[in-house]
Design a binder for these strands. Structure first.
Length: 564
RNA sequence: GCCCUGAUAGCUCAGCUGGAUAGAGCACCGGAUUUCUAAUCCGGUGGUCGCAGGUUCAAGUCCUGCUCAGGGUACCA
């Protein structure tokens, strides 16, 4: 429709089709039709009133799939609703499950580095950000046809393991095998405390970490046990969140590859020694602080490991794009690390993307301000505690509103977690997330449960209809303002999800779901579908809405209960 | 000091490539249920788009300067 309009317009005025296409816009107000052309630019060229120009041009354009209406200085184009509705529904019915998916990314691979917690610590509430944003990036790209590799780059190496190993170095093999995670975490905390009072503890930890690095048997055993236990613990939470990874290769894996990496950078001739440290100067990239590859004491750093991991991933997956989902405080690190790759003239350097996000703030009722995920006593807020509380609150509401519902506890889990997850994804990544149970577990308005409810409600109508849904013989019942708006909105899902992919922004999908749900609920209040004479065609509304919402929510990693 | 990010209704946020009257939700006020799920819907109150210039027929959107807030600024990750 756009191209057709542009072609006709271009032949009437002194402009190329491309230029006309650029000027054509989608009006904000739906009453203005599907597309519009502003005539302001022309008034300068033609030296005529834009209102007059709009009238003149509008008379000269004609087609059967839209009508033209001059409104002031604009020419508005209103689609032939019958034609548009038929197109959308035919496409929808051709493959209901695939609607909203695409093969845009066919043959392309992207890797997403996300979640990446440190082991030997529980998952804290703030981990939900990287985990769910990354999970959503994975899901939306898969939906767009990409081959996606989700990587949990575990923090499973570092001097902190010295403390843990020191705590258990006198245990025998059997005792080590019987350790549980709580004992390890307690020991770690205890050793840290002890080190503050007694510097010899720190020395011991350092020597234990050296044992680990040199491959000492028992140190290795303790480390492995700690890793296994932590991962099992993480997996339990990930399962609740519906998150999975294709690789759990962490930092430790790259330890023996760092020397090679450093050689590779040195061979590129871009390294310097500065104050005893091995650096890559990045002044020519407009970055005033250099990237450190090796400290003056010989130890490697974060950037060294990330460089090694990036090279390894490229060799392994030959990715076309790599996302790193971390908080925005690490922006400089990624700028440096990507610039080093570029300076090394590696082919994938231009395909590296940092997807930064704002911090998670928790409302502190006693101080009346937003705090960084710690309680008054300085304790971190555990992710599982939040999920449990959310589930409990969901259950209370179910008991109150749907006492007869089947699988209550399962639905409560889906709703409670859905609320927390959606709350995390509904705004642009860069915004700080301000978390309060009152907002997040509020089930009204722009929330996860509102969307789950809308989807369940739509699905319920379809279930009660109970017959096969076929392409209607005519579309008269579907071209009223309210149903036409819904069909138009549903039809934008493919472009919406592609935009979400290219910007790496889950909130774009979240917004789509909210807008669609609002349109549907409004329609639902006005039109009684099952009693309508046109039920056989109207049933397509809840059918399309429930499918589109399910697809959208699944891209966000929010579960969709069949009934609630 | 330098760099990055943010600033839109009382609160939390949308506003895509500059276009028509700046939109939602929450909160507040008032309505709707013998009818497919009221976790819903309808209406109302509420705005100097941080400030000041500039570009343009047209600026919340682009440019410059400033203010405030947060973060980062080589041997942590």
């Amino acid at each position: 429709m756009k191209v057709e309009i542009a072609t006709q317009l271009a032949s009437l005025i002194e402009m190329s089709i491309d230029d006309v296409v650029k000027l054509i816009e989608v009006p904000k107000n739906t009453e203005h039709g599907e597309l519009a052309f502003p005539c302001f630019v022309l008034s300068k060229i033609l030296k005529k009133n834009p209102v007059q120009i709009a009238k003149d041009l509008s008379d000269k354009i004609s087609a059967n799939n839209f009508i033209t209406v001059p409104v002031g200085p604009y020419i508005n184009f209103k689609a032939n609703r019958q034609v548009l509705v038929k197109d959308v529904i035919s496409e929808f019915l051709a493959d209901t499950d695939k609607f909203g998916s695409s093969d845009f990314g066919q043959g392309k691979t992207i890797v997403v580095d996300f979640s990446s917690p440190n082991i030997a610590k529980p998952l804290a509430f703030h981990h939900i950000r990287s985990t769910m944003i990354g999970n959503s990036l994975v899901k939306m790209h898969r939906n767009a046809g990409y081959n996606v590799v989700g990587i949990n780059h575990l923090g499973d190496w570092g001097t902190q393991f010295g403390y843990i190993i020191a705590a258990f170095k006198d245990c025998d093999e059997e005792q080590i095998n019987n350790l549980n995670l709580k004992e390890i975490i307690d020991a770690y905390v205890g050793m840290n405390k002890a080190a503050k009072e007694d510097s010899s503890v720190e020395d011991m930890a350092r020597s234990c970490f050296l044992d680990l690095e040199s491959g000492h048997n028992k140190a290795r055993l303790i480390w492995q046990k700690c890793r296994d236990l932590s991962l099992a613990e993480f997996e339990r939470v990930y399962r609740r969140l519906g998150v999975s990874f294709d690789s759990n290769i962490g930092e430790a894996f790259f330890e023996d590859k760092l020397e090679n990496l450093i050689k590779q950078v040195e061979n590129a001739g871009i390294t310097n020694i500065s104050d005893g440290a091995l650096i890559v100067d990045l002044e020519d990239y407009g970055i005033t602080t250099p990237c450190l590859l090796r400290k003056s004491d010989g130890a490697t750093l974060y950037a060294t490991r990330d460089l090694a991991a990036a090279c390894y991933r490229y060799e392994t997956y030959k990715f076309d794009k790599a996302f790193y989902v971390t908080d925005s405080g690490q922006s400089l690190h990624f700028k440096q690390f990507f610039s080093v790759l570029d300076k090394m003239q590696l082919p994938f350097a231009k395909n590296m993307y940092h997807a930064p996000f704002g911090v998670l703030l928790v409302w502190d009722e006693t101080t009346k301000e937003w705090t960084k995920g710690r309680t008054r006593s300085g304790q971190i807020v555990l992710l599982e505690d939040i999920l449990d509380e959310a589930t409990k609150r969901a259950m209370d509401i179910i008991q109150d509103k749907r006492p007869d519902l089947a699988n209550k506890s399962q639905v409560a889990e889906q709703i409670g977690i859905g609320a927390v997850v959606f709350n995390d994804l509904k705004h642009r990544r860069i915004k700080d997330v301000k978390f309060s149970f009152e907002d997040a577990i509020n089930f009204e308005g722009e929330t996860g449960p509102y969307l789950q409810y809308s989807a369940a409600r739509a699905a319920s109508v379809v279930r009660k209809y109970g017959k096969e849904i076929k392409l209607p013989e005519n579309f008269n019942a579907l071209i009223s303002d309210s149903s036409f708006e819904i069909i138009k909105k549903v039809s934008t899902l493919p472009e919406v999800s592609l935009r979400a992919c290219s910007e790496g922004e889950p909130y774009i999908i979240a917004n789509f779901c909210l807008e669609l749900a609002a349109l549907f609920n409004s329609f639902y209040a006005k039109v009684h579908i099952l009693d309508n004479v046109d039920v056989d065609s109207l049933i397509l509304i809840p059918e399309m809405v429930s499918k589109a919402l399910s697809k959208g929510l699944s891209m966000l990693g929010v579960a969709v209960p069949e009934q609630m």
